[in-house]
Amino acid sequence: MITNLFPTFIAMIFAVNLFINSGVLDFILSLIKPILNIFKIPAEIFPLAIVRPISGSASLAYLNSIFAKNGPDSFIGLLGSVMQGCTDTTFYVISLYFGSIGIKKIRHSMFAALFADLCGIVVSIIVVNMLWG
């Protein structure tokens, strides 16, 4: 089982780290920022929403930095907590689960899983705004 998992693991971590470290993520964020301002969503929360499905440890590290900067009971701290709690690391679960049994064609699972993440993120913004906005 370990021999099945390890190559998937390396590729996954390599891709995610390269994506975050090379600055692509920051670039995408700078593009999306004006749209967020229209909906009055704090821009600082957005990296969390994007990283959450890709890497669990990266999003947890990001939540850590939000807590350190704004405190866990601030609006953005609460929103970050709910966002982190409402979904799981989609890409990780899909790679791990399908990789372990050698599935090559995953059909619509990626789309459906990301749609679920999107639902969770949107609802967490709405709920947090209603409760503590």
Binding site: G71, M83, G85, C119, G120, I121, V123, S124, V127
Partner: peptide, 28 residues
């Protein structure tokens, strides 16, 4: 993690989490 950062109410987010995770699951 919230406890670690000295939150006054670490479990405050549980209810909001349950609602959003349920909607995510149902949507999925």
């Amino acid at each position: 993690l919230r406890m670690m950062y000295g939150s006054s109410e670490p479990t405050k987010i549980v209810f909001a989490c349950i609602i959003s995770t349920m909607v995510a699951t149902i949507g999925g």
